[in-house]
Design a protein around this nucleic acid. Structure first.
Lengths: 208, 208
DNA sequence: CAGAAAACATCATCGAATGCAAAAATTCAA
DNA sequence: TTGAATTTTTGCATTCGATGATGTTTTCTG
């Protein structure tokens, strides 16, 4: 249907935004599980019943931009550069994970991260979303390199890269290190995976 | 406290077992979300309230042996063999994931797998458990190779290996391949990670 | 057997989630 | 502009998972 014209669509987008902002504010103020759906709905001036026509559940609000981000990642994989290797492409995907061009997402990034790290239900939801994304990315990668990758190799590549990046980031941040250090850890992890675990004990290869 | 003697402990173990078996049977018969806690509790002849003193929630029943399996994995990492490389140890851990020595777990393995693949809530829970396990394993690995690994490298290694194995297994099974093929895919994925992603697709290519 | 401790049941409550039908808002065509 | 047609919102009822409080039964210890 029409994408942005129409009062209806605009109002819908506005309500969605209001729900996200209201919910995130409440989560920050009084905690995720302490915030009830009734309160979230009230903060956007809709009924609790209406909430569920925007989000499937309380957790979904926190990941309001997940679909959009996945689409962008799939686009990167789908339009791979000429002569680019699988590894190079995946490193570029990891790198792209750092960029935000969405207002709302940028503003809420820190609070979202804090929530995901502290609320078990959100942690589980985040991992599930990430997992589904990996599957999609692996399929796209397989399609992008039809002559070089079978589906299992593609899955292994994506799983390894994302798995390493994820765990490296979490371990770094769990030690209380700042964002910058965490990103450095992610890049290092990606490099290790790219060049093989066997390179771990040995002197580091020349970084890219 | 005493470990296994005592009527109390035996009865508790028996009840726990009854809850697991009853729940899994009901899940198989009528589906996970169609089964209520009241029914599960009734199948083991306890009150619904008592159920929660055995499991934190309906999903936990399905992963009744998670803790035990993690402990065994940590034991492997903790007692690494003389001269064994990080990669070799991790490959051995992956391999050990295939072994079951628990009656109950063996009998319920197929149904459990089917459930996890089809029920979103269980998928999320499984990923969360796996993630927490990875953190613990990464820490253990770091402790086992204090001279060769920092915590980020250990995290990257574990994340890469587990991530690759997981995604490879799921992709394989999603294609309808049998267990044996899935395990082959897991081993292949582990090998790819061990030798580096760059080894994918192009047999003879200079490292980055 | 008596007292302590653990496990359990009963009762009550809260919140998330869903189905349903009525009401309101928006679109579109005449 | 008016009046359907369609979409969105809402209120209500209900189901179910989860938790707390409290008293009772069962098991353990001496």
């Amino acid at each position: 249907m029409m994408d942005d014209a129409g009062l209806r669509a605009r109002k819908k987008a506005k309500t969605r935004r209001a729900l996200v902002e209201g919910a995130m504010r409440l989560f920050a103020e009084k905690g995720f599980e302490q915030t009830t759906l009734a309160e979230i709905a009230a903060s956007a001036e809709v009924s609790t019943r209406t909430f569920f026509s925007y989000f499937a559940g309380k957790e979904e609000v926190v990941f309001f931009d997940a679909e959009e981000r996945l689409d962008r990642t799939l686009a990167i994989v789908g339009h791979r550069r000429e002569g680019e290797s699988v590894t190079q492409l995946l490193l570029r995907v990891v790198e792209a994970g750092a960029t935000w061009d969405d207002d709302l997402a940028t503003r809420l990034a820190a609070e979202r991260f804090r929530l995901v790290m502290t609320v078990p239900a959100l942690q589980a939801r985040a991992l599930h979303l990430l997992f589904d994304s990996q599957r999609r990315v692996a399929e796209a990668l397989c399609a992008a390199y039809p002559d070089e990758l079978d589906s299992v190799s593609a899955a292994a590549a994506v799983g390894a890269m994302v798995g390493a990046a994820k765990l490296a980031a979490v371990m770094s941040l769990a030690k209380g290190e700042p964002y910058e250090a965490a990103w450095k850890a992610v890049r290092k992890a990606a490099q290790v995976v790219a060049s093989g675990l066997d390179s771990l004990g040995r002197p580091a290869r020349q970084p890219v």
